[in-house]
Amino acid sequence: MNIIVKEELKAYIDPLTPDEHDALERSILAEGCRDALVLWGDVLVDGHNRYGICQKHGLPFQTIQHPHFKSMEDVHLWMIDQHLGRRSVSDFQRGVLALRKKEILTERRQRRMAESAEQLAAAPGEAGAAEPAADAPWEGAAELPPVPALNTREAVARAARLSASQVQQIEKIQKSAAPELVAAVRSGEVSLNTAATVAALPVEEQQAVVAAGKDEIKQAAKRVRQSKAKPKEAGEGGEEKLNSAGLPPVTAESATEAQIKALQARVAELETENAALRAQLAALQG
Protein backbone atom coordinates (compact mmCIF):
# COMPACT_ATOMS: atom_id res chain seq x y z
CA MET A 1 0.00 0.00 0.00
CA ASN A 2 1.38 3.38 -1.03
CA ILE A 3 0.53 5.92 1.69
CA ILE A 4 1.49 9.55 1.09
CA VAL A 5 2.33 11.64 4.15
CA LYS A 6 1.95 15.36 3.47
CA GLU A 7 3.91 17.49 5.90
CA GLU A 8 1.28 20.26 5.78
CA LEU A 9 -1.36 17.82 7.07
CA LYS A 10 1.00 16.26 9.60
CA ALA A 11 1.75 19.71 11.05
CA TYR A 12 -1.77 21.11 10.69
CA ILE A 13 -2.71 20.06 14.23
CA ASP A 14 -0.37 20.57 17.18
CA PRO A 15 1.83 17.46 17.62
CA LEU A 16 1.63 15.20 20.65
CA THR A 17 3.91 15.98 23.55
CA PRO A 18 6.75 13.47 24.09
CA ASP A 19 4.86 11.96 27.04
CA GLU A 20 1.66 11.61 24.99
CA HIS A 21 3.57 10.01 22.11
CA ASP A 22 5.28 7.55 24.47
CA ALA A 23 1.93 6.60 26.00
CA LEU A 24 0.45 6.00 22.53
CA GLU A 25 3.43 3.89 21.54
CA ARG A 26 3.12 1.73 24.67
CA SER A 27 -0.60 1.25 23.98
CA ILE A 28 -0.02 0.18 20.37
CA LEU A 29 2.77 -2.20 21.35
CA ALA A 30 0.50 -3.78 23.98
CA GLU A 31 -2.81 -3.85 22.11
CA GLY A 32 -2.01 -3.21 18.47
CA CYS A 33 -3.26 -0.36 16.29
CA ARG A 34 -6.98 -0.54 17.04
CA ASP A 35 -8.15 2.57 15.15
CA ALA A 36 -7.98 2.62 11.36
CA LEU A 37 -5.98 5.28 9.57
CA VAL A 38 -8.12 7.67 7.50
CA LEU A 39 -7.07 8.20 3.87
CA TRP A 40 -8.12 10.47 1.03
CA GLY A 41 -6.99 8.46 -1.92
CA ASP A 42 -3.35 7.71 -1.05
CA VAL A 43 -3.02 10.74 1.25
CA LEU A 44 -2.93 10.10 4.99
CA VAL A 45 -5.43 12.41 6.71
CA ASP A 46 -5.73 11.07 10.26
CA GLY A 47 -3.38 8.78 12.18
CA HIS A 48 0.09 10.18 11.50
CA ASN A 49 1.40 9.18 14.93
CA ARG A 50 -0.09 5.68 14.73
CA TYR A 51 1.29 5.23 11.23
CA GLY A 52 4.78 6.28 12.33
CA ILE A 53 4.75 3.93 15.32
CA CYS A 54 3.50 0.99 13.24
CA GLN A 55 6.17 1.63 10.60
CA LYS A 56 8.85 1.82 13.30
CA HIS A 57 7.91 -1.54 14.83
CA GLY A 58 6.62 -3.33 11.72
CA LEU A 59 3.09 -3.61 13.09
CA PRO A 60 -0.04 -4.11 10.96
CA PHE A 61 -2.75 -1.48 10.69
CA GLN A 62 -6.09 -0.93 9.00
CA THR A 63 -7.08 1.93 6.68
CA ILE A 64 -10.39 3.42 5.59
CA GLN A 65 -11.23 5.85 2.80
CA HIS A 66 -13.16 9.01 3.50
CA PRO A 67 -15.48 9.23 0.47
CA HIS A 68 -16.77 12.78 0.93
CA PHE A 69 -13.68 14.94 0.63
CA LYS A 70 -13.76 17.13 -2.48
CA SER A 71 -10.97 19.57 -1.65
CA MET A 72 -8.16 20.20 0.82
CA GLU A 73 -10.51 22.64 2.56
CA ASP A 74 -12.85 19.74 3.32
CA VAL A 75 -9.90 17.81 4.72
CA HIS A 76 -8.87 20.70 6.96
CA LEU A 77 -12.41 21.25 8.25
CA TRP A 78 -12.78 17.54 9.03
CA MET A 79 -9.45 17.45 10.87
CA ILE A 80 -10.44 20.50 12.91
CA ASP A 81 -13.80 19.00 13.88
CA GLN A 82 -12.15 15.72 14.89
CA HIS A 83 -9.78 17.48 17.27
CA LEU A 84 -12.39 19.88 18.62
CA GLY A 85 -14.27 16.85 19.89
CA ARG A 86 -11.33 15.31 21.74
CA ARG A 87 -11.08 15.79 25.49
CA SER A 88 -7.29 15.82 25.51
CA VAL A 89 -7.13 19.07 23.51
CA SER A 90 -6.40 22.13 25.67
CA ASP A 91 -8.57 25.25 25.80
CA PHE A 92 -5.95 27.20 23.85
CA GLN A 93 -5.73 24.54 21.12
CA ARG A 94 -9.52 24.36 20.79
CA GLY A 95 -9.73 28.12 20.47
CA VAL A 96 -7.02 28.21 17.82
CA LEU A 97 -8.73 25.43 15.87
CA ALA A 98 -12.14 27.13 16.03
CA LEU A 99 -10.65 30.43 14.84
CA ARG A 100 -8.91 28.57 12.02
CA LYS A 101 -12.24 27.01 11.06
CA LYS A 102 -13.85 30.45 11.07
CA GLU A 103 -11.16 31.72 8.70
CA ILE A 104 -11.71 28.82 6.28
CA LEU A 105 -15.49 29.27 6.27
CA THR A 106 -15.20 33.05 5.83
CA GLU A 107 -12.89 32.64 2.84
CA ARG A 108 -15.20 29.98 1.36
CA ARG A 109 -18.24 32.22 1.79
CA GLN A 110 -16.51 35.18 0.15
CA ARG A 111 -15.35 33.05 -2.74
CA ARG A 112 -18.82 31.63 -3.37
CA MET A 113 -20.41 35.04 -3.22
CA ALA A 114 -17.88 36.30 -5.78
CA GLU A 115 -18.58 33.31 -8.03
CA SER A 116 -22.32 33.88 -7.70
CA ALA A 117 -21.92 37.55 -8.61
CA GLU A 118 -19.90 36.60 -11.70
CA GLN A 119 -22.61 34.16 -12.78
CA LEU A 120 -25.33 36.77 -12.38
CA ALA A 121 -23.28 39.31 -14.30
CA ALA A 122 -22.72 36.83 -17.12
CA ALA A 123 -26.48 36.15 -17.47
CA PRO A 124 -28.28 39.39 -16.45
CA GLY A 125 -32.06 39.31 -16.21
CA GLU A 126 -32.27 35.58 -16.81
CA ALA A 127 -35.55 34.32 -15.46
CA GLY A 128 -35.34 31.94 -12.59
CA ALA A 129 -31.70 32.75 -11.87
CA ALA A 130 -31.26 32.83 -8.13
CA GLU A 131 -28.20 33.52 -6.04
CA PRO A 132 -27.10 30.37 -4.26
CA ALA A 133 -26.85 30.44 -0.51
CA ALA A 134 -23.44 31.54 0.74
CA ASP A 135 -23.09 28.39 2.80
CA ALA A 136 -24.29 26.01 0.09
CA PRO A 137 -22.00 23.00 -0.48
CA TRP A 138 -19.67 22.80 -3.44
CA GLU A 139 -21.09 21.21 -6.57
CA GLY A 140 -20.71 17.47 -6.29
CA ALA A 141 -20.28 17.55 -2.52
CA ALA A 142 -23.92 17.17 -1.55
CA GLU A 143 -23.00 14.19 0.64
CA LEU A 144 -21.16 16.46 3.08
CA PRO A 145 -23.29 17.76 5.97
CA PRO A 146 -23.75 21.55 6.07
CA VAL A 147 -21.15 23.41 8.10
CA PRO A 148 -22.59 25.97 10.54
CA ALA A 149 -21.29 29.49 10.04
CA LEU A 150 -18.82 30.88 12.58
CA ASN A 151 -19.33 34.57 11.88
CA THR A 152 -19.39 35.79 15.49
CA ARG A 153 -17.10 35.40 18.48
CA GLU A 154 -19.95 33.72 20.36
CA ALA A 155 -20.32 31.13 17.59
CA VAL A 156 -16.59 30.43 17.69
CA ALA A 157 -16.80 30.08 21.47
CA ARG A 158 -19.62 27.52 21.19
CA ALA A 159 -17.65 25.50 18.63
CA ALA A 160 -14.61 25.47 20.92
CA ARG A 161 -16.61 24.93 24.13
CA LEU A 162 -15.15 28.14 25.54
CA SER A 163 -16.48 31.50 26.68
CA ALA A 164 -16.45 34.52 24.38
CA SER A 165 -13.91 36.19 26.68
CA GLN A 166 -11.58 33.20 26.37
CA VAL A 167 -11.81 33.41 22.58
CA GLN A 168 -10.96 37.11 22.80
CA GLN A 169 -7.91 36.26 24.93
CA ILE A 170 -6.75 33.70 22.37
CA GLU A 171 -7.13 36.28 19.61
CA LYS A 172 -4.90 38.67 21.59
CA ILE A 173 -2.30 35.96 22.10
CA GLN A 174 -2.27 35.07 18.41
CA LYS A 175 -1.94 38.72 17.43
CA SER A 176 0.63 40.04 19.91
CA ALA A 177 2.31 37.26 21.91
CA ALA A 178 5.97 36.41 21.42
CA PRO A 179 6.64 32.82 20.25
CA GLU A 180 8.07 32.00 23.68
CA LEU A 181 4.87 33.13 25.38
CA VAL A 182 2.74 31.13 22.92
CA ALA A 183 4.82 28.05 23.70
CA ALA A 184 4.25 28.62 27.43
CA VAL A 185 0.48 28.71 26.86
CA ARG A 186 0.55 25.59 24.68
CA SER A 187 2.45 23.68 27.35
CA GLY A 188 -0.01 24.76 30.04
CA GLU A 189 2.67 26.68 31.95
CA VAL A 190 0.53 29.84 32.01
CA SER A 191 -3.20 30.45 31.73
CA LEU A 192 -5.00 32.13 28.85
CA ASN A 193 -5.81 35.15 31.00
CA THR A 194 -2.20 35.63 32.13
CA ALA A 195 -0.76 35.18 28.63
CA ALA A 196 -3.25 37.59 27.06
CA THR A 197 -2.33 40.19 29.68
CA VAL A 198 1.43 39.77 29.26
CA ALA A 199 0.99 39.97 25.47
CA ALA A 200 0.39 43.71 25.94
CA LEU A 201 4.12 44.12 26.66
CA PRO A 202 6.72 44.67 23.92
CA VAL A 203 8.00 41.41 22.43
CA GLU A 204 11.48 41.79 23.97
CA GLU A 205 10.01 42.19 27.44
CA GLN A 206 7.71 39.21 26.92
CA GLN A 207 10.73 37.09 26.01
CA ALA A 208 12.64 38.25 29.09
CA VAL A 209 9.66 37.58 31.35
CA VAL A 210 9.14 34.05 29.98
CA ALA A 211 12.87 33.31 30.33
CA ALA A 212 12.64 34.35 34.01
CA GLY A 213 10.07 31.65 34.72
CA LYS A 214 6.45 31.07 35.63
CA ASP A 215 6.44 33.27 38.74
CA GLU A 216 7.84 36.26 36.87
CA ILE A 217 5.21 35.81 34.14
CA LYS A 218 2.50 36.08 36.80
CA GLN A 219 4.18 39.13 38.32
CA ALA A 220 4.38 40.81 34.91
CA ALA A 221 0.67 40.18 34.35
CA LYS A 222 -0.04 41.67 37.78
CA ARG A 223 1.94 44.81 36.94
CA VAL A 224 0.09 45.23 33.64
CA ARG A 225 -3.29 44.92 35.39
CA GLN A 226 -2.26 47.38 38.10
CA SER A 227 -1.12 49.89 35.49
CA LYS A 228 -4.56 49.79 33.90
CA ALA A 229 -6.41 50.03 37.20
CA LYS A 230 -4.46 52.94 38.76
CA PRO A 231 -4.10 56.50 37.45
CA LYS A 232 -0.86 56.98 35.51
CA GLU A 233 1.86 59.01 37.17
CA ALA A 234 2.17 62.55 35.87
CA GLY A 235 5.64 63.98 35.30
CA GLU A 236 6.83 67.52 34.88
CA GLY A 237 4.51 69.58 32.73
CA GLY A 238 1.76 67.02 33.29
CA GLU A 239 3.35 64.48 30.94
CA GLU A 240 3.02 60.83 31.86
CA LYS A 241 6.16 58.92 32.84
CA LEU A 242 6.02 55.51 31.18
CA ASN A 243 8.57 52.82 30.54
CA SER A 244 9.14 51.08 27.20
CA ALA A 245 6.14 48.85 27.85
CA GLY A 246 3.84 51.85 28.26
CA LEU A 247 3.66 51.17 32.01
CA PRO A 248 4.58 53.35 35.01
CA PRO A 249 8.24 52.97 36.08
CA VAL A 250 9.05 50.64 38.94
CA THR A 251 9.16 52.52 42.26
CA ALA A 252 9.91 51.49 45.82
CA GLU A 253 6.19 51.06 46.34
CA SER A 254 5.59 48.93 43.23
CA ALA A 255 8.82 46.92 43.10
CA THR A 256 8.46 43.24 43.75
CA GLU A 257 10.68 41.39 46.20
CA ALA A 258 12.36 39.64 43.27
CA GLN A 259 13.19 42.98 41.63
CA ILE A 260 14.66 44.34 44.86
CA LYS A 261 16.83 41.24 45.29
CA ALA A 262 17.97 41.48 41.66
CA LEU A 263 18.96 45.13 42.12
CA GLN A 264 20.80 44.34 45.34
CA ALA A 265 22.70 41.54 43.60
CA ARG A 266 23.63 43.87 40.76
CA VAL A 267 24.93 46.50 43.22
CA ALA A 268 27.07 43.85 44.90
CA GLU A 269 28.48 42.80 41.51
CA LEU A 270 29.37 46.41 40.66
CA GLU A 271 31.05 46.92 44.02
CA THR A 272 33.15 43.80 43.46
CA GLU A 273 34.13 44.98 39.98
CA ASN A 274 35.08 48.41 41.34
CA ALA A 275 37.26 46.85 44.04
CA ALA A 276 39.03 44.73 41.43
CA LEU A 277 39.62 47.77 39.20
CA ARG A 278 41.03 49.76 42.12
CA ALA A 279 43.42 46.92 42.92
CA GLN A 280 44.58 46.77 39.29
CA LEU A 281 45.10 50.54 39.22
CA ALA A 282 47.14 50.42 42.44
CA ALA A 283 49.30 47.64 41.02
CA LEU A 284 49.98 49.64 37.85
CA GLN A 285 50.85 52.79 39.83
CA GLY A 286 53.21 50.81 42.05
Results as ranks from 00 to 15, higher is better:
E189L: 14
A117F: 02
L59W: 02
D91F: 00
A129F: 15
W40Q: 15
V5S: 06
E269L: 12
G95T: 10
E236S: 07
A208Q: 12
P132H: 10
P60E: 08
R158G: 01
L84I: 06
E139F: 09
V267H: 13
A200S: 13
P148G: 06
R86V: 05
P202E: 03
D46K: 07
L9C: 03
Q259M: 10
P231Y: 01
N2D: 09
N243Y: 02
K56F: 04
S254F: 03
A134W: 10
T256D: 11
E233T: 05
T63R: 13
R112T: 03
L39N: 00
T152I: 12
D91M: 05
S191F: 04
A234C: 06
L77G: 01
T272P: 02
L29C: 11
T256L: 09
D135H: 13
V182H: 00
P231W: 06
V38H: 15
V209N: 06
G246A: 12
L150H: 02
K70Y: 04
V209C: 12
I173L: 02
Q285W: 09
V210Y: 03
E257A: 08
S187C: 08
A196F: 12
S27F: 06
R94Y: 06
A229C: 02
V147S: 09
S88T: 10
N274E: 02
E204G: 04
Q226M: 10
V38Q: 15
A220G: 11
A199S: 13
K241P: 00
V203K: 11
K56R: 07
A220P: 08
T17S: 15
A11H: 03
P179D: 14
A121N: 13
Q55P: 06
E20F: 11
P249W: 07
L59I: 07
V224D: 03
R26Q: 15
H76Q: 13
A208W: 11
L162C: 11
L120M: 07
L105E: 11
H21K: 15
E126Q: 14
H57S: 04
